[in-house]
Nucleic acid binder design. Structure first.
Lengths: 142, 142
DNA sequence: TTTAAGGTTGTAATGAATACAAAAATAAAA
DNA sequence: TTTTATTTTTGTATTCATTACAACCTTAAA
């Protein structure tokens, strides 16, 4: 077993996620992905490597990741939830033309919470979603 | 017809929404509501006033409002979309305990876009969602 | 008083996500 | 090594929000 997988194992363990084969593969897939995949996309791609995997396992795994704080749900699109492995708190941009999601560099991000409480409500999370036309789609129209 | 309804009629008209009875009632309901209702909640409540209304009409109406910029979708909760009549751009807070959505006062809001473009992407919208434990739930636990 | 256009209704269909029970795998105990 | 217990995984069925669609109704124009 290579060091990368060993690192993932340790990382999952240290976050209360029992590092089974499926979970390691899914986490590795998400770490390598830049497209903020949906459960469906993860399922389809992982299936190439593990043909017997079930969609339920993907959902279970993602829910376990989210519950233990090592993955984040992005409610940026209307119909589907996208998933992200947050490195250092950054915002996201959704292209309303092509549907692609981009990372916004931390220096432009607004979701670094410094406030702990607003109007008496205890703040634990802040999600900021930008929307518009992405660079690529803007160029295509010219 | 009272002035309030007349005003709504004019407002819908000026935003390219043909002001039918159903649409006026739904818009009025949303303006008076502080709970950022879902389509289901709107349907249930409006049904008391217009028993023959269909759920499709509620969805059609809301989609028409959103398309014409007089209502906004809140993708703040996991399963359902909530709707808001945005007055002056403010953020929202979701209590992860009771599910209630609160308005964040504009002075604490982050979604006033001043930037028109980030990393080459043209920005047209910014949605910021705070989450945590609301004032009321915090008091209940004591 | 027809014709056309838009609005509404109800039912059917879609599709993401969950529930659940059986089977499989893994770990712990004897 | 066997037995038992616990956790995972699988597959199917179900739920539920939302949309599709065709029939019907309403309104306004011709």
């Amino acid at each position: 077993m290579n060091t990368k997988i060993k690192n993932i194992k340790m990382y999952l363990e240290s976050n209360n996620v029992n590092p089974t084969y499926h979970r390691i593969v899914i986490f590795q897939y998400m770490e390598n992905s830049t497209r903020h995949p949906t459960a469906e996309q993860i399922y389809t791609d992982i299936k190439k490597e593990i043909p017997t995997i079930s969609k339920t396992t993907v959902y279970n795994t993602l829910n376990s990741f989210v519950k233990n704080g090592i993955a984040e749900k992005l409610n940026i699109a209307d119909s589907e939830v996208h998933y992200d492995i947050p490195d250092n708190g950054h915002d996201h941009f959704l292209c309303i033309n092509c549907g692609k999601i981009y990372d916004i560099k931390p220096e432009y991000s607004k979701s670094n919470i410094e406030i702990k409480s607003i109007q008496g409500h205890k703040i634990t999370q802040l999600h900021c979603y930008y929307k518009g036309i992405c660079k690529s789609c803007r160029n295509d129209k010219k």
